[in-house]
Structure formats: structure tokens, C-alpha cells
Simulated assay, not measured.
Amino acid sequence: MNLTHRQIHRDVAYFYVGLILAFSFSGIILNHRQSWYPTEYAYESEEVTLKIPKGELTEEKVRELVAPFKLEYESHRLRENNLRVDFTGNSIMELDIKTGEGVLEARRTVPFLGHTIKLHKSTDTAWIWYSDIFGAAMI
């Protein structure tokens, strides 16, 4: 089989066209991530009202607070008057500390868009090498 440079160029281009599209989409989406969060979406939402205990919200207190929801606690963070609790399995709860009102959301990764964004964020050594080779090939 005798391949010409043109045929080799064409075949390499077929290989890379998928990555070109994925990088293009994810780059545009990341540029507009302040307008909407493209990685995941809420598919189930429930309004909640909890009695927030007085004093410092330690991990133990937060675990007790969310225990009735039967979700596996992962972590929490406080920002000003808001408490965000992350659960294993992509569920989150966001509460206003003053009122105790908030929302419990179950989330899913956005098909295609959420996955292509991971291309830009990956720190896997194999992916970095592949990405570098891809960049060099594009040059």
C-alpha cells in the first residue's frame, strides 16, 4: 500500500476533527460560565426550611442538621449568610443561615457539554501528553 502525503494528511485530519469540535465547544462554554453553569443541571429540586443552630456551624452540627434527608454528607462551606452542603452523588443543599430557608437539588452532568469541559480541566498525565501532541499537530 503506497500512501501519499495528501492521503496521510486527510486521515490524520479525520482523527483530529472530533477533538477540534470538542475543544471549540468547551472553550466557548467556559468563556460564558458566569452566565450559566454548563457542567451540571438540577433535575430535581425541593424547597427546605431548617432550624439553624446558634453559634459556630461545625462539621458535626451540619451533619446533624442534614441527617433527616438520608443523604451521605461530603462537605460544607460557609459564605457570608449562606451554607452550602455537598452530598455524595451530586446533590447539594444551599441554605440562608438567618432564615433557614433553602433548596435541596439533585444534579446531573450536562450530556456532551459537561464532558467536553473536562478536556480543559484534566490533569491526567496521559491526557496532558495527548493534548500536547494534538496542539503540536494543529500547529
Results as ranks from 00 to 15, higher is better:
Glu60Lys: 15
His120Cys: 03
Leu113Asn: 03
Phe87Lys: 12
Ile52Glu: 04
Glu94Tyr: 01
His9Asn: 03
Met1His: 13
Tyr37Thr: 05
Val110Pro: 09
Asp11Thr: 06
Thr99Glu: 07
Arg79Trp: 05
Ile92Leu: 07
Ala136Cys: 01
Gly89Pro: 04
Val103Asp: 04
Ile128Arg: 08
Asn82Ser: 11
Glu94Gly: 01
Ile29Phe: 10
Asn82Pro: 00
Glu47Trp: 02
Leu71Pro: 01
Val103Cys: 05
Leu50Pro: 08
Val17Gly: 01
Lys121Cys: 00
Ala22Val: 11
Glu56Trp: 00
Ile133Leu: 14
His115Val: 01
Glu40Met: 14
Lys70Met: 08
Ser131Ile: 00
His76Thr: 04
Asp86Ala: 11
Leu30Phe: 07
Leu57Glu: 04
Glu40Leu: 08
Leu113Ile: 14
Phe15Ala: 05
Glu46His: 12
Ser131Asn: 14
Val17Thr: 12
Val85Pro: 06
Glu64Trp: 02
Leu104Trp: 09
Ser91Trp: 12
Asn31Ile: 02
Lys98Asn: 11
Arg6Ile: 07
Tyr14Pro: 00
Phe87Gly: 13
Glu72Asn: 10
Ala67Lys: 15
Lys121Ser: 00
Glu94Leu: 10
Arg33Met: 07
Ala13Gly: 10
Phe15Cys: 06
Ser122Trp: 02
Gly135Asp: 05
Ile20His: 05
Gly89Lys: 13
Lys70Thr: 03
Arg84Glu: 12
Ala22Lys: 09
Gly27Asn: 10
Tyr14Trp: 15
Val17His: 13
His32Met: 04
Thr116Ala: 04
